[in-house]
């Protein structure tokens, strides 16, 4: 086997293993979330408990997103942005998970019950 091809395979393995480790860290150490925190333009605007089913309209400078909380999961079902990527996101329920809508600078992040950690920097 050519040396470069062997190095390619090593590179792929290293990347795959590090992705797996990162994923394990994220999924093992993130407890089930308690609140969905809404952040618009870097500032927290609201938080909703995941235990209650709700539907809210999040207004931002450039548009809106509809956030639906159902059966302990938060999901964006409708948005004003042209690409609609935030609608394609899977629903989130674990602490640390996020839904991002870049055009509206809106982020939904799930935080755990015991931690009062605010993900906004």
């Amino acid at each position: 086997m050519k040396k470069t091809v062997r190095n390619d395979i090593i590179l792929v393995l290293i990347l795959a293993v590090s992705a797996l480790l990162l994923w394990l860290c994220v999924s093992l150490f993130s407890p089930k979330g308690a609140y969905a925190v809404v952040t618009v333009d870097g500032a927290e605007t609201a938080r909703y408990p995941l235990s209650e089913n709700t539907e809210v309209r999040i207004e931002s400078e450039s548009g809106y997103n509809i956030l639906v909380i159902k059966d302990g999961k938060a999901d964006i079902t409708e948005a004003s942005c042209p690409d609609g990527l935030c609608i394609d996101f899977h629903s989130v329920s674990k602490a640390g998970e996020t839904i991002v809508c870049l055009p509206n600078k809106t982020v939904i992040s799930v935080v755990g019950s015991e931690s009062e950690v605010d993900f906004a920097q």
Binding site: A19, K105, V107
Partner: peptide, 14 residues
């Protein structure tokens, strides 16, 4: 976005 938790997507993106 100013939200560090977006890094959650790092494994998927790698």
């Amino acid at each position: 976005t100013g939200v560090g938790a977006v890094a959650y997507y790092l494994p998927t993106l790698v």
